[in-house]
Each structure stands twice: as C-alpha cells, then as structure tokens.
C-alpha cells in the first residue's frame, strides 16, 4: 500500500470566510473513501484543491509526493458536481475527445460500458435523461487509468437503480493501485461500499475512520452517527 494523497495543515479562505481549517489527512492506495459532510462543509473546496483548481491559502498538499500541477493531472480523474460537457456533442464524440485529451483513457472500456447500458453512441448528450447523462459522465471518469478518482456528488439526484449502477461501476473498476474519493451527503446509500469515511464540518475534519471500526465502536451505522455528529 502506498500513499496517494497527503494534506498537511491545509487552510483555504475566501475573503473573510474560512472554507477549510487545518485539514490534515492521508489517503492510501486501494481504498474507497467517503468524504461526508453537509452542504457548505468544504467538501468541494477540498476536492478542487486536490485537482489544482484552487490553491491553498496556507498548508501543503501532495499527490504521490507531488504538489498539484501538470505532473499530477494524469494521476487524478475528476468528476465535477456540475455538468461540464458540451450538450450538443454525441456520446461517441465525447469519448473520442477524452481519448485525445487523456493519454490513459481507454475508449474500448468506455464503449463497452456504454453498450452494456444500452445507450446509443450516436445520441447527443442533450437528448439523454439526467440519469443516463450522469452515467456517461461517470463512465468517462472511470475509463481513465488514474491513481486517484475524485467523484463530487456522483449519486445526488439519481434514481435507486442508477445509484446501484454507479456503485457497482465503482466496485467493478476497483484497482488496488488506485483510490476513489467520493463526496456525498447521501451516506446510507453508499456506506457499505466505503472502506473509510472522512467527516467534514465547518471546514474541519471531525473524524477519519474505517466503516467497520465506526460500527464496532458506536454500534450504529455511519449514517446514524453522521446524523448525530451533524445535528443542529
């Protein structure tokens, strides 16, 4: 097991607002990790720091010992929480674009998953249902051979069958050399598929533990514990 991600005393301020406060954590390879917290806790800010879309106010962050930049781009595969693809493009065009864009992208794998879903590769993105669009986005992200997959809210707003599909895609693409970081506030749907959970509240990490250890220690599901920790 090797270290994929390390954060050391990260702070991120937006003006006078502190979005992240003294965040330190390490993520090892071969893990599926949940980044859990209510809206506005700082999940997306942390994810954007990992992707190099934001820079920390103070503190350091390393992906396989390198600070985010050109060298870490091939290592991180990122699913943003908003649709960023051109709606007029066909599924096929987007897959080809990704193959051009990312050296580690495997179009064969992407087409195979698209076929299995029964999505027509000639379909334009704008003609797909919300659920199918989310599936296509996930397939694109999971078809790369990255070290760290960062999925920002992949299961928000989809039906239970789509959610199951997303979860099984994550398990199916499991690779002991890589890790998956999933941010969500829908914990009960996803907790059994997680190795570890990170609770984040008001920009601070309040807990980082394994799912089984939490259940053993507290005698309750991660979801129940979450509701307790984040009670109003």
């Amino acid at each position: 097991m090797s270290e994929i991600l390390r954060c050391e005393h990260l702070h991120k301020d937006f003006g006078s607002k502190q979005a992240l406060v003294d965040v330190s954590l390490t993520v090892e390879s071969g893990k599926i990790i949940g980044l859990l917290g209510p809206n506005g806790a700082g999940k997306t800010t942390l994810i954007k720091l990992i992707n190099g879309l934001l820079t920390p106010t103070t503190g350091k962050l390393y992906i396989e010992s390198q600070e985010p930049g050109i060298n870490t781009k091939p290592k991180v595969s990122y699913l943003p929480d908003v649709n960023y693809l051109n709606n007029w493009m066909s599924v096929e065009d987007i897959i080809k674009m990704f193959a051009d864009f990312y050296e580690d992208f495997r179009p064969d794998l992407a087409f195979e998953m698209i076929n299995r879903l029964g999505i027509d590769r000639k379909d334009r993105l704008k003609n797909l249902s919300k659920g199918n669009k989310e599936k296509v986005c996930l397939i694109l992200v999971m078809s790369r051979s990255a070290k760290l997959y960062v999925l920002d809210e992949p299961i928000a707003g989809v039906d239970p069958a789509t959610r199951d599909y997303i979860i099984s895609t994550i398990i199916n693409n499991y690779n002991p050399e890589a890790s998956v970081l999933i941010s969500t506030h829908l914990i009960s749907d996803i907790e059994s598929v997680l190795d570890e959970v990170i609770f984040i509240k008001d920009g601070r990490i309040v807990m980082h533990d394994t799912v089984d250890h939490i259940r053993e220690e507290h005698g309750k599901s991660v979801d129940d514990l979450f509701r307790e920790v984040f009670k109003w």
Partner: peptide
C-alpha cells in the same frame, strides 16, 4: 472477491 463484493454491494477490501 470482486464477484462477492459486487453481489453484496461492499468494497473488495472488506
């Protein structure tokens, strides 16, 4: 391991 993980909906590590 992967088949069991998929059918149980849990991580392969578990």
């Amino acid at each position: 391991v992967r088949e069991v993980a998929l059918s149980a909906g849990v991580t392969p590590n578990t």
